[in-house]
Measured scan of single mutants.
Amino acid sequence: MTTFKLIINGKTLKGEITIEAVDAAEKEKIFKQYANDNGIDGEWTYDDATKTFTVTE
């Protein structure tokens, strides 16, 4: 398992979430669903070196 981080830079929601997953593709799906469930629609980036997804509205 690898630890992945999501950084949220939303208009109404900001924060960080850290979760373990098998791979980045699995985690991306979970993070995007979390963002969608919380009304966050923005630009996504991924840094493989730090295993960090960022979504910015």
Results as ranks from 00 to 15, higher is better:
G42K: 03
G10V: 09
T50P: 00
K11P: 05
N36R: 14
L6M: 04
E28V: 09
M1T: 12
W44D: 00
D48F: 07
K14N: 08
E26N: 12
A21P: 01
M1D: 05
K14V: 13
W44L: 02
L6H: 01
T2G: 05
G42E: 02
T56H: 07
Q33L: 04
F4P: 08
F53K: 01
T54W: 11
G42W: 15
V22F: 13
T3G: 04
G42N: 00
K32T: 08
K5L: 11
G39R: 04
G39E: 03
L6E: 04
I8E: 00
K14I: 13
M1R: 12
T54D: 01
K32Y: 09
I30R: 02
E20P: 07
Y34F: 14
F31L: 08
K27V: 15
F4H: 09
E57N: 08
E16S: 10
F53C: 15
T54R: 04
G42A: 05
E57W: 14
K29Q: 10
K5M: 07
Y34G: 01
F4E: 06
T3I: 13
E20N: 10
A25W: 13
K29M: 10
I7N: 02
L6Q: 00
T3R: 11
E28C: 15
Y46N: 00
T2F: 14
W44Q: 00
I8D: 00
T56M: 05
E26M: 09
A24M: 12
T2M: 12
A25T: 09
L13D: 03
F31I: 12
K51T: 02
D47N: 06
N38Y: 14
K5G: 01
E26L: 09
E26T: 08
E26W: 11
A24G: 13
E16V: 13
T45Q: 05
N36T: 11
T12G: 12
I19D: 01
T12V: 11
T45G: 03
A49Q: 10
A21R: 05
T2H: 10
M1C: 15
T12Y: 14
A49M: 08
K5N: 06
K32R: 12
Y34E: 00
I40S: 02
E43R: 05
D23L: 05
F31A: 06
T56I: 09
N9T: 06
K14E: 08
K29P: 03
K29C: 13
F31P: 01
T54L: 05
